[in-house]
Nucleic acid binder design. Sequence first.
DNA 1: TCAAAGATTGCAGGATGACGCAAGTACGCA
DNA 2: TGCGTACTTGCGTCATCCTGCAATCTTTGA
Lengths: 128, 128
Amino acid sequence: MTQVRNRRTPATPKQAAACRGPLDKLLDPVLFKAFSDPTRVALIGCIAKCGRGCSVGEVAECCSVDFSVVSRHLALLARSGVLEATKDGRTVFYRVRYAELCRSLRSLADALDECCPAKGGAGNGKCC
Amino acid sequence: MTQVRNRRTPATPKQAAACRGPLDKLLDPVLFKAFSDPTRVALIGCIAKCGRGCSVGEVAECCSVDFSVVSRHLALLARSGVLEATKDGRTVFYRVRYAELCRSLRSLADALDECCPAKGGAGNGKCC
DNA sequence: TCAAAGATTGCAGGATGACGCAAGTACGCA
DNA sequence: TGCGTACTTGCGTCATCCTGCAATCTTTGA
């Protein structure tokens, strides 16, 4: 009985933690950490609504923090996969990775739905 | 020309930052901060996959941190709107707010899509 | 080759957050 | 009423992060 593949609702949180599901890959702290700072969120919204690649200098005009802070935040956002950097001469353009971001968010929402008991989740074998 | 309602693509990030769109309400640092810590993420995944309300003690068995740490994290997650707390006697059951969470994630994805130039966004008046 | 523009990086400060221990609170049961 | 369980809260410590200033790097244009 020790090797039985758990395809039903885990009885306890400990059992739930032991089984790996789609949720575990999608709940990425690194991605969400990018969205956890007010300044960074402002920068993301700024670039997202602009709809094009923006230089560090342009973005720095949007907020009250130092130029170097903006540079650092944008670099971090690029490392997190939120933004994409393109260098053109001495100017670096940062643009939002709309497709990848939307896919991650919707996949996470789907994975949560799969776990939701009200929607027949957690017992359908898709969560764990 | 100063009062013209901007319903087209903002020319600069500064203009984009000035106009309020759906994205600004959905990019909530408080919500994403909840997902930014590895321990918290583990707790969320644990409760989510379990699919039912879990007590603090049960959840504490899943991870290696102190009981008090788990209690604090769960309380924070409840304040952030990720979890929902129900008290039954001396036991507090925390459960994932699947519906609200999924709605927030999908709304954000939709709002980002509205901004994406490749999908005709940022010029359709829905982003700003 | 030199100067200027655009951006990154090193450094130090201050703030925030995660953690464990211990004490305290709330509730149920005998 | 007393005791044990379940959880919360206060406190101190340590690590991480955000920020601004200054120096540096890279690239362009004269």
